[in-house]
Design a protein around this nucleic acid. Structure first.
Ligand SMILES: [Mn+2]
Ligand SMILES: [Mn+2]
Ligand SMILES: [Mn+2]
Ligand SMILES: [Mn+2]
Lengths: 214, 214
DNA sequence: GCCAGAATTTAGGCTCACCGAAACCCTGCT
DNA sequence: AGCAGGGTTTCGGTGAGCCTAAATTCTGGC
């Protein structure tokens, strides 16, 4: 009686990822924007997900996952990120090209194929963008992080993850050899110095996409 | 204006494969049985496919693909068979386990991913069951074939393909080390002698699933 | 040539996921 | 306190794709 369609999976996943690196709950309208659907469509799906016990929702209020919903959401996120990792690791994709393909395949592959991929990849802990890959039981290991745009000048650390929302940002950073694991010091707003002493000017869009060690 | 959904793709593919190894056109009711839908559902989809110029259909008559429809159909078949080949060749699946997964993935992977898979596999000409993999332009290389069940005693040749419809048959044949390429002589009805002199008794279901060189 | 039974189509309905327009609720600002 | 504007929900509709039940059409056997 609880099948969860591809559409519902995307709603759950988006509700989950919204609170992954920041703590405020998502609103129906923000969810509509992220999913590219009308607000009224969100209202409808929210009703169904709440009726299935996957989210909680007080009318006119924000959305929150229940434990059951969080488990479903992390299962989808796990698929999405393992697929992205596989596309980059084995299929010749660049990190700015994987998101759309994963967005579809995450609803199509079987558990068996997912585990075959996972095994081939050696059970990776992070996707190409540095996002943690949830374990099958829903466990997620997420270190404390700060947005580069909000870090104070002088902050030293390493890149934890880069949002994969904007492919242009990903290409920009790839050209600059910046990615998860890159060590740096924030020399000035939008200016980082890498371990080898080279400095890089990042765009505001990039600074708002890069999360670094706290 | 001509997107072809996953459902429509399955209709086209099934119409195509019905005539791949035998020459009679498929009827609406046979199509309904193969797809597991009601006959009235076929009538509806047939109307849409005919309106899109992908099939021809005279009321109460059989179904036939147009050139455009055949191209679409072979594109789906190409995906299906490349995916099956990949699952067996790289992902640890047995030949009786790939069909259902391919049935779904064939509608989900991008052209780019398909070609990446094709390249990794070295541009295979046949899937694990011996079925020809259509070229991107719709070309299919299919040798003359006879159903083993209909071959005359004394017929010598090799296995060309085994229908993947019945997993039990595939497991039976795998246990007997019979598959595409296997050379044999038909010693008696349901009894074949392999190249090494060993003889095998095949079930009627298997004999009705194995196509051999004419 | 007729007609019973099978195949096919039509008719009416259903669920899912979406939409725009209109109503409604809530909040923040005066 | 009052209210305007934005967020949210309600309402009526759409298109896919499926269903069952009731016509309708075709055909093989008499
Ligand atoms: Mn998705
Ligand atoms: Mn990612
Ligand atoms: Mn198959
Ligand atoms: Mn399919």
């Amino acid at each position: 009686m609880n099948h969860t369609t591809g559409a519902a999976e995307d709603y759950l996943k988006t509700i989950y990822t919204h609170t992954e690196w920041q703590s405020d709950l998502i609103s129906p309208s923000a969810l509509a924007v992220r999913l590219g659907v009308a607000p009224s469509s969100v209202t409808e799906m929210v009703k169904k997900l709440a009726a299935s016990g996957l989210i909680t929702h007080v009318p006119y209020g924000p959305l929150a996952l229940t434990d059951a919903g969080r488990l479903r959401a992390t299962a989808v996120v796990r698929r999405h990120r393992l697929i992205e990792t596989w596309l980059v690791g084995e299929m010749g994709y660049d990190w700015d090209q994987v998101h759309d393909e994963a967005e579809i395949l995450e609803h199509a592959i079987s558990d068996r194929l997912l585990e075959a991929i996972n095994t081939r990849l050696g059970f990776p802990a992070h996707d190409p963008h540095g996002d943690p890959i949830p374990a099958a039981d829903g466990t997620v290991l997420r270190p404390p992080a700060v947005l580069l745009a909000e870090a104070t000048v002088g902050h030293a650390g390493s890149v934890l993850r880069v949002s994969d929302r904007d492919p242009a940002v990903l290409r920009e950073l790839a050209a600059d050899l910046i990615g998860p694991g890159t060590e740096f010091t924030l020399a000035a707003a939008l200016t980082i110095v890498l371990a080898d002493g080279q400095s890089r000017l990042v765009t505001p869009a990039a600074a708002a996409s890069i999360w670094v060690t706290a």
